[in-house]
Amino acid sequence: MMRVRSSRLSLVPLTASLIRLFLYNRSELARVLDAKVPTDWPGPDFEPILPLLLDGFEREPGHEAWDGAIMLEGEERVLIGAMGLKGGPDEEGTVDIGYNILPAYQNQGYATEMARALIAWAFERSDIYKVIADCLYDNQGSIRVLEKLGMKRLVPDGDMLRWSLTKEEWQVAQQ
């Protein structure tokens, strides 16, 4: 199970029971997480994904959760967003990182900090060799995060910018 922490943040892997609490009993979700759950979480980008994740958990109850984890800010104990590695590694050892941060917590370095910790965790695994990401051309926040992580911009795919970082590039940058 994914256990990732940074100096200010922690990731709590989503489970079927946490998703059900979000859908049906938000106050109980806050109690179980021992955290504040803002009314605007998960936001329009991540909310449609939750039922899909729940369906996946119900079809495969024992599968490892890669797709989503709740991001908690440690000092205030507040849910500020979500981050994950969409679907886990493919046959070539590539994972696709995705994240969202609630507007009130953007531009404070949270996405960069947690993505850096998640990438470090991923590259400690023997089955992951590359992290990729996509973002829209006009998503300046994500572009800055991906650049700070040392990801390389690839050839765009339609209306999406594509990014890549290999384990070797990561290790060299960490020296």
Rank of each mutant, 00 (worst) to 15 (best):
R3N: 04
R5T: 04
L9H: 12
V12D: 09
P13E: 01
L14K: 02
A16H: 00
A16D: 08
S17K: 05
L18R: 07
R20M: 02
N25L: 08
N25R: 08
R26G: 01
E28A: 11
R31E: 04
L33C: 08
L33K: 01
L33N: 06
A35H: 05
K36T: 02
T39A: 13
T39H: 05
G43F: 06
G43Q: 07
D45P: 04
D45W: 01
I49V: 01
L50Y: 00
L53Y: 08
L53E: 05
D55V: 00
D55A: 04
F57R: 05
R59G: 14
E60D: 14
P61Y: 12
A65Y: 09
A69K: 02
A69W: 11
A69V: 10
E73D: 09
E73I: 02
E75N: 14
L79I: 04
L79Q: 15
L79P: 10
G81I: 14
G81A: 12
M83H: 03
L85E: 03
G88T: 09
G88C: 11
D96L: 00
D96T: 03
Y99C: 12
L102F: 03
P103D: 14
Q106F: 10
Q108G: 11
G109M: 10
G109D: 01
A115S: 14
A115I: 15
W121C: 06
F123R: 09
E124F: 10
E124H: 14
D127V: 05
Y129C: 09
K130W: 03
I132F: 03
L136M: 08
Y137H: 15
Y137W: 08
N139Q: 10
I143R: 11
R144A: 15
R144C: 15
V145P: 12
L146V: 01
K152D: 00
R153G: 06
D157F: 00
D157H: 02
G158M: 05
D159E: 15
M160F: 09
W163R: 06
T166N: 15
T166S: 15
K167L: 05
E168R: 08
W170P: 13
A173V: 11
Q174F: 15
